[in-house]
C-alpha cells in the first residue's frame, strides 16, 4: 500500500508546520534512530533523513526513513543525485513508497569534495529538477522515465530545497518557480540566518504567486558556538552566516555562546513566522537534537497537532521486522 503524507495534511490544514532533521547516524543498531526520533517526534510534524549528508557515508536515507515509518513516525526521505544514476534513483523512490515513506525531498546534493571521501566518483546523472520531474512522472503516469509501466503507482508528497541566501539572488525565485513546474509541492530552505534577505526573496515569491502553489518551510537551527558558526560558514556548502550573527556570538563568553545560539534561533523563527507566505520551519540542530524541544517551545510552536497514529514505543519498535 502506498503511504499518504501526514505532513501534507498538517500543511493543508493551515497549521504552521515544524519539521526536524535526524542527525546522520553511523551505527548498525536501529535503536540510535528510534531514540533520536522519539525526541524529535514530540516537537515536530515530520522528520527528515539525510542522504549521505555532507558527502559522508552514513546509515542510508532510505534505511532511516523506513525505520521511522515502521516505528510510526512521519519521515521525509531526502534523496540526492550525487551517488546514484537514474536507474538507482527510481528504484529507491519506489522502495520508499513500498516501505511506507510518504514524503520525498529531491536534492542535487553537495559535491564529493565536501566530505571525507573526496576521492569518490560523483554521479549527477540527474539534477534535483530532473529527479523531481521523474518522481512526478512515476506518480502521475505510473511509469518509469523509460516509459515502462509501474504495476502500482507510488504516492508521495514531493519536496525540494531552495537557497535564497546565495547568488544569483534575482534568479532564486525563478528557480523556485522551475522546481514547482518540475513537481515540487513543498520546499525546505537552506539554513536562514539572514532574515532581511529572506524577506526580499519572499516579496518576489508572493508577487509571482508562488506561495500559493507550494508550501515553503524555512530552514533554521541553533549555532552551538562561534567556532562552529565559523566552521559551518567555511565548510558547509550554501550556508551563509552574516556578520551580525557572528558579532552576537562574539559578544558573549564561550560558555554562554550555546544559549546565545539558541536565542538567535528562536528569534529567527519568530521573525520568519511573521513573513506572509511562510508555512513552517525546518529545524536542523546538528548534534544538538536535545535542544529542538526547547527551541520549538520558546518559539511558541507547541503543542504540535495530534498525530493520526501514535509512534510505537521503543520496546515495540525493537520487534518490528523489516
Amino acid at each position: 500500500m502506498s503511504p499518504s503524507s501526514r505532513l501534507e495534511s498538517v500543511l493543508r490544514s493551515g497549521d504552521f508546520a515544524v519539521t526536524a532533521e535526524l542527525n546522520p547516524r553511523d551505527s548498525a543498531d536501529p535503536q540510535v534512530v528510534y531514540q533520536q526520533a522519539r525526541i524529535l517526534a514530540e516537537f515536530s510534524d515530520a522528520i527528515n533523513t539525510g542522504d549521505g549528508s555532507g558527502a559522508n557515508s552514513h546509515l542510508s536515507s532510505l534505511g532511516m526513513a523506513a525505520l521511522l515509518a515502521r516505528a510510526g513516525h512521519e519521515p521525509v526521505m531526502q534523496l540526492g543525485c550525487r551517488d546514484r544514476n537514474r536507474i538507482a534513483l527510481q528504484g529507491e523512490l519506489l522502495a520508499a513508497a513500498a516501505l511506507g515513506v510518504g514524503n520525498v525531498l529531491c536534492l542535487t546534493g553537495d559535491g564529493v569534495q565536501a566530505g571525507d571521501q573526496p576521492d569518490a566518483k560523483s554521479v549527477f546523472d540527474l539534477d534535483s529538477m530532473g529527479l523531481l520531474r521523474t518522481a512526478r512522472i512515476m506518480r502521475g503516469q505510473g511509469r518509469f522515465l523509460s516509459g515502462r509501466k509501474i504495476e502500482i503507482a507510488p504516492r508521495w508528497f514531493l519536496g525540494a530545497a531552495s537557497n535564497p541566501f546565495v547568488p544569483p539572488y534575482d534568479f532564486r525565485p525563478l528557480r523556485l518557480q522551475k522546481k514547482i513546474e518540475a513537481g515540487a509541492e513543498f520546499i525546505q530552505t537552506q539554513y536562514c540566518f539572514d532574515v532581511p534577505r529572506l524577506r526580499q526573496f519572499m516579496a518576489r515569491v508572493r508577487d509571482m504567486g508562488l506561495d500559493e502553489r507550494v508550501f515553503i518551510l524555512v530552514g533554521v537551527g541553533p549555532l552551538r558556538s562561534l567556532k562552529s558558526a565559523l566552521w559551518m560558514r567555511e565548510h558547509v556548502p550554501g550556508v551563509v552566516i552574516p556578520e551580525s550573527i557572528e558579532k552576537r556570538l562574539r559578544g558573549v563568553p564561550s560558555d554562554k555562546q550555546q544559549e546565545q545560539g539558541l536565542q538567535i534561533c528562536v528569534e529567527i523563527i519568530q521573525q520568519v513566522r511573521e513573513i506572509p507566505g511562510i508555512k513552517g520551519v525546518h529545524v536542523m540542530a546538528y548534534r544538538q537534537e536535545e535542544w529542538v524541544g526547547e527551541i520549538v517551545e520558546r518559539a511558541g510552536l507547541l503543542p504540535r497537532p495530534k498525530l493520526a497514529r501514535e509512534p510505537l514505543v521503543e520496546e515495540e519498535a525493537k520487534h518490528v521486522s523489516l
Binding site: T108, D127, M129, G130, V166, P167, P168, L174, R175
Partner: peptide
C-alpha cells in the same frame, strides 16, 4: 558545471559567485 546541472545554479554557489 561540475554537477552538470541542467536547470540553473545549485544551492552551493559561494557569496563571491
Amino acid at each position: 558545471c561540475p554537477k552538470e546541472m541542467r536547470n540553473g545554479p545549485c544551492g552551493g554557489v559561494r557569496l563571491d559567485g
